[in-house]
Amino acid sequence: MSESSSAVARPLLPNLLAINDLDLKQIQHLLALAADFQQQTPAKSLVGKRILLLFYEASTRTRTSFEVAARRLGAETVSITASSTSIEKGESLLDTVYTLRAMAIDAIVMRHSVSGSPVLVADHVDVPVVNAGDGMHQHPTQALLDAFTIIRHKQRIAGLKIAIVGDLLHSRVARSNIELLSRLGAEVRLCAPRTLLPPAFASLAPGLILTHRLEEALDAADVVMVLRIQMERMRESFFPSEAEYVHHYSVTADRLRAARPDAIIMHPGPMIRGVEIGADVADSPQSVIREQVENGVLIRMAVLQSALLPARFSKA
């Protein structure tokens, strides 16, 4: 296919590194495209494209989700994980990326334990980079799929009371969701012990409500998003014990009565039942946790197509 001007040929998403890189039009486009994919079997729009899944950090659901999304659109995937030999031998991130880039890669989907690593890579390669989660920084496709899921149930985001509860400090999911849901007009409440919710969080978006009291966060909430306690990112004690955390912050059926009766429960996974979330809550009819996983594939299809095809072929 020939393009009349290079401006037309540019993809809608040159990269997807952080939610704040997106303007409102791009966000709406991605959500609408995902809705299209849900309604009708998508065309194999990415046949002949090769997508590198570069995962420096263990991941089951996100990597599989991107892989399924890519294949549904006809793309080929190459999967590299942290245990791959060159990485284990100590090759630098950029050297690994340069080597793989030379193998006719059209896009890179990347996860890394260090914040900002996909930004570094995007600065040094000429193909789109999609951030699949970097350190404590961002997880933009997770926030997009969460917004998509909320809209499926509530038909809107604006005006909703959304509580995000758990290990906010170490959460890239929280940072992306705070930026996205606030931008779309929700009242976002953040709840965690003081050690996991420093006051600087208030600067992430206008109008955020920070509280250390769970009942305050849950009061009349439309959406309750629960986050795992990330023990692997904790260097020193942030709270006395898991038991004490459960006593004060576990989202149980009993505490959930403070929320609206039709509130939906979300969790980005992996979920530890009996710690941040009660088992009864995870399995309740209000829980949309499994649906989040399904919607993840749709959003990632929308993201990959928008990153790889020129904007005008990326129908919404």
Binding site: S115, G116, D134, M136, H137, Q138, R175, A200, S203, R235
Partner: peptide, 18 residues
């Protein structure tokens, strides 16, 4: 300062850097 990579404040929080 253990594990830190930049000044602790609003910018480090947004960038997700210790």
């Amino acid at each position: 300062s253990a594990g830190g990579a930049m000044h602790e404040g609003e910018v480090s929080l947004r960038l997700g850097l210790p």
